[in-house]
Design a protein around this nucleic acid. Structure first.
Lengths: 217, 217
DNA sequence: TGTACATCAGTGAACGCGCGTTCACTGATGTAC
DNA sequence: TGTACATCAGTGAACGCGCGTTCACTGATGTAC
């Protein structure tokens, strides 16, 4: 019933030597399908090929199998997320304010693009551990920026002693903690939207405030 | 290759009037399959029937469709989780200690039973909103116990003023915050195990400590 | 300048698979008379 | 006590579906001579 699904887009083949461009077209069509269909399971090889205006076997000219395509889409999504967070924090001098902006942007990204968020952070680890490491590195870009933000905060104020004995000021551990808190909120909203959630801004404000008060004296 | 998959279990049919017992058998077999196979997608009607020692159509004598079966399994899992948390907190007089025990038990439940955890908290909301509400109510049992725990903590010490203006001591909001933090950690470990995670106990200890310090003066 | 040809981008049709679900059925068993 | 029969628990075989993937192919195009 949807024109975009039933009627293949008109397109002419790439000229000799430029066939590799199709790879990018397929990637873009696949990314758009995630948004349009809002369901990872509906993003099939056939649907992607159709959205690209190409036959299903053509996908295999550029991706070894479906996993490889999905991983490539994820890498693009991770880059999107990272860019969104950086844009949100840009220009904020106070690192605590930058952290708040980052947290807000992260939660918004998840709530506004639940299917993409689900693909990035709630999917089963894909087949080979090596592939998953490639993803992990991309995630690391955003995580690395978060860690730097945390370091800037810790540099301005001495963290309170941690009861448990390990150094409270370990930026890596603090960043993990912050990520866990914001991801926890975001992913619960995504997978249990019917639960009675307060407004996003209020919830992030609380998490941010309590994390800072808990970490700093 | 697996005997439990290839060779149907020997069983005689229930006597007249006792056919309803099969429903319980199917439920138990399905729950066991989640543990054994460690993958929701492998829990098919055929596999459940085979594990029960029955033919696939027999499942439909007791469940309208696959969704109904999965929802029933979830309800049992939610009850399991709640019982585990209650057992962990039992006998602890200090409500802050009880909270810590609850948080630890929750994270352990998720990390030790990742597939069950995934089914409970990381799945897409199932078809009808009404069904999902039934699940939500079961989740509410554990969540209700968490809220009571939080109330007990707030009763012993006056929470610090919340910067954002809303009452910091709202047990419901605080409980959501705690749940989000622990779920965030747990679900990230479940879906990104390759990331460099510190030991579970250390991470929960930090989250607990920082939440308490952040919330209380 | 013309032409044969290797190479490239891309395809049509099909394979095999496992799934949820349906349908007409079978054989045992309790019960009414 | 014997027997016909309604009812119950459960089944065998098949349907239709959509999927990922493969295979032999086609037609356009740049290039070598």
């Amino acid at each position: 019933v949807r024109p975009s699904e039933d009627t293949p887009a008109l397109r002419s083949r790439y000229r000799r030597g430029e066939g590799a461009h199709l790879r990018q077209d397929i990637l873009e069509a696949a990314s758009a399908l995630f948004v349009e269909l809002g369901d990872e399971e509906k993003v099939t090889i056939r649907a992607v090929a159709n959205a690209t205006g190409v036959s299903p076997p053509s996908v295999y000219l550029h991706f070894a199998d479906k996993d490889e395509l999905i991983v490539a889409v994820c890498e693009a999504l991770f880059a999107d997320l990272d860019a969104t967070l950086e844009a949100a924090a840009a220009g904020l001098d106070d690192p605590a304010e930058a952290l708040r902006a980052r947290m807000l942007a992260y939660a918004r990204f998840g709530v506004e693009h639940p299917e993409q968020y689900r693909v990035l952070f709630m999917r089963k680890p894909v087949g080979a551990p090596l592939k998953s490491t490639a993803e992990e590195l991309k995630a690391l870009a955003a995580f690395g920026h978060l860690s730097s933000n945390v370091e800037a905060i810790l540099a301005t104020r001495q963290p309170r002693d941690d009861r448990a004995g390990e150094p409270a000021g370990d930026a890596y551990l603090v960043a993990l903690e912050i990520w866990a808190a914001v991801h926890g909120y975001t992913s619960l909203v995504v997978s249990h939207p019917a639960f009675g959630w307060p407004p996003l801004e209020q919830m992030i404000e609380r998490i941010w405030s309590h994390l800072l008060h808990g970490l700093l004296p």
